[in-house]
Design a protein around this nucleic acid. Structure first.
Lengths: 215, 215
DNA sequence: GAACGTTTGATACGAATGTTTGTATCAAAC
DNA sequence: GTTTGATACAAACATTCGTATCAAACGTTC
């Protein structure tokens, strides 16, 4: 069984994801991708049919898989707690995105790729929404529902969940903006400050008092 | 003085902005732009030198101007109040983005264009940061500082300001996501609900109790 | 009405684009 | 030993890209 390093098809997916995330679909040529993957120009057509299909395959085989890893990481962090409070949940979420099990570059790629779809949805957007965002936001909502006022309806719940996610995402993909405004680099210390801020802001935003009672 | 409708140079800027916002820089050709503007292919070269310069000129003459209109709108809304509380400020801000003096399409374009720069900064990003974001976030911070604990440092202030902005922006450019999750269309009623949510979430997020004491 | 800056029209160019083709390679199956 | 099927390759495909050129037509201003 060929490893990911040696299989040209796998290399193509990896390099394509990196380039698509960094420069966007149209700014990347199939020649760039095949050159980066160290294989022939025709390989994309052979393995994926065309460029567009390669892009979608990146989402199917790479992006979705990574999203599941992130989610597992969140649940892993939480599973040995008796009670999962919103601050603990949000912290686990923010940590998964700002630290997490993958490399820094992988995490950045992941968010960049999705953010491009959010701005300009294509076929991949459906995939991301149906397979990841909807169930994830649903689960997130159900976890925090017990801590909200009794009569909170589903729509209000989703707006709260979306707000939490938007903050976490913004402090990821908007790094350049955040760096300019705060004058800080995204080192370990700053990331931890960011997480503290996100947890505090969103927890109190939910109307739950400034509790950071979980590490 | 030729109106915007008749002047080819102005039409080029308008159509270019619309196309760049919707499809991104690389996905738009100069032929598309000149065709949409109803003028000759050579016009771009004559007026702007090249495509890249046209893009930057869109930011210089259109985007920045619009950003100033939005800011003025915010201050206009606030000027006849004796005390500008954070909820009133945030509401004015959110309203300017979700309703505002321009057309729905113009507002969408504005945020889309900026969002693309946030994800993948180019020369225009510097412009946006230096001329709009930095001073605006600074002013926003100073307005809410009196309501925060006395010892709040500048960095914490900026993180709070960024969080407010991120929420407002997300509920704009992330329309497709929000629509999918909530099942609501972006009609008048939903927009007003969104504003109420943003004001409440961010106001309490700042640690100011759930005050919505300003219309 | 002459001069000027502007706009159009048609055309050309080299470079880059996504895609296709025909052939070579090589291990597995027969 | 031959056939098969999957993979890889260089070369070429037609198209589109951004840019450039240049003469003719336009509208405005001296």
């Amino acid at each position: 069984m060929a490893a990911r390093e040696t299989d040209p098809k796998e290399r193509l997916l990896d390099e394509a994801e990196a380039l698509f995330a960094e420069n966007g679909y149209h700014a990347v040529s199939v020649r760039e991708i095949t050159a980066a993957a160290g294989c022939n120009l025709a390989a994309i057509n052979y393995h994926f049919g065309n460029k567009r299909n390669l892009y979608l395959e990146v989402f199917r085989t790479r992006w979705l898989a990574r999203a599941r890893v992130i989610q597992e990481r969140v649940y892993e962090t939480l599973q040995n707690k008796k009670e999962i409070t919103p601050p603990a949940l949000i912290r686990a979420l923010a940590e998964a995105f700002l630290f997490g099990p993958m490399s820094e570059k992988d995490r950045l790629r992941h968010v960049q790729l999705m953010q491009r779809e959010v701005i300009q949805p294509t076929e991949a957007f459906e995939m991301v929404m149906d397979e990841v965002m909807k169930p994830f936001l649903g689960a997130l909502g159900e976890r925090i529902r017990p801590y909200l006022p009794a009569g909170t309806d589903q729509e209000r719940l989703m707006l709260n969940a979306l707000s939490i996610i938007s903050l976490i995402l913004y402090f990821n993909f908007g790094r350049e903006s955040v760096k300019r405004i705060t004058g800080r680099a995204y080192d370990q210390a700053f990331r931890e400050e960011l997480i503290r801020h996100i947890v505090r802001f969103t927890t109190t935003g939910l109307g739950l008092g400034a509790g950071e009672n979980a590490s």
